[in-house]
Nucleic acid binder design. Structure first.
Length: 278
DNA sequence: ACGCCCGCCTGTAAGC
DNA sequence: TGCTTACAGGCGGGCG
């Protein structure tokens, strides 16, 4: 379940490693991974011969701008991986669905066991306008753009449970199940508190927690859980899971109170929290 | 219009 | 031990 930190780690890796490279060939093994296109060629033709100009992240999406006015958009879904192979000879992992070969040699591979991820190509200038899932994204917590006051105003606009709000991509882009729990623990707030019920001090705590947790997670190169297996472009796992305070730690002592971490079903998924959150 | 639940997937692990 | 079932969850869509 790559969330913002994992996608940001990949963005930085791609920025160093594939920007400037020219695409020689594209092989689509599994059409489901490019399901917005009905024909393979709609995906492969705009890519072949194009040079990668830049790599941006929008929430959990990666956008690779090409030198032909088109962009390659990637969403990793739950189990998607992007892996660099120095040569085509390197053994392909199971569930390799798309292979992008570069003129200078080497490949970029899209590997995705659960196939919730996808790749597609679209004209660069219509991304925000014509793709609602990208156009409707809320603010990016790693952009320094938003102020506490603006954040407070946005919270007051709705009366939504905090966990739902943090995971709502239209409100804030890039947070999923793991980081919403970690952020709420850091902020000392319960997942079911209503967004318009927070004191100014609680708003500030939440604001700070969002930024701190996500920045920290990027610093430790993302979270790699046993059942998921996020890895960076070179195939290395992250280390932030060792810094999780509550996620996946049901029954373990809360770092603050030593009372057992609670787990509760909320919105059809597991939520971890401590009784110290109010 | 919004909150909630399902379906899409596969690998892993718990349960009988 | 081996089979079945539950669970993991991002996101679109459908329903109330």
């Amino acid at each position: 379940m790559p969330e913002l930190p994992e996608v940001e780690v990949l963005r930085r890796d791609l920025d160093k490693d594939v920007v400037g490279r020219k695409i020689k060939s594209v092989e689509v093994v599994t059409m489901r991974s490019v399901r917005r296109h009905t024909k393979r060629k709609q995906f492969t033709e705009p890519l072949e011969g194009a040079k990668i100009k830049s790599v941006e992240r929008r929430g959990k999406y990666l956008v690779l701008a090409l030198d032909n006015e088109q962009s390659l958009v990637i969403h990793l879904g739950m189990s998607g991986q992007l892996l660099r192979a120095k040569s085509a000879k390197v053994a392909k992992p199971k569930h390799t669905h798309v292979i992008i070969g570069f003129t200078q040699g080497g490949q970029l591979r899209f590997v995705d066991p659960r196939t919730f991820g996808e790749m597609f190509v679209t004209k660069s200038d219509v991304i925000a306008d014509e793709l609602p899932e990208l156009g409707h994204l809320g603010f990016d917590p790693l952009d320094a753009g938003i102020s506490v006051d603006r954040f407070a105003a946005l919270l007051r606009q709705r009366s939504m449970k905090l966990k739902s709000l943090l995971m709502d991509q239209k409100f804030i882009a890039g947070i999923g199940n793991i980081y919403s729990d970690e952020i709420l623990f850091q902020a000392g707030l319960r997942f079911d508190r209503l967004s318009d019920s927070l004191s100014p001090q609680e708003v500030r705590r939440l604001f700070r927690a969002v930024i701190e947790v996500l920045q920290d997670a990027v610093k430790y190169r993302g979270s790699t859980l046993a059942d998921e297996g996020f890895v960076d472009l070179q195939g290395n796992p992250g280390e932030y899971q060792d810094h999780h305070q509550v996620y996946g730690r049901e029954g373990e002592p809360c770092p603050r109170t030593k009372k057992p971490i609670m787990r509760q079903r909320y919105g059809n998924r597991s939520t971890y929290y401590s009784v110290s959150q109010v």
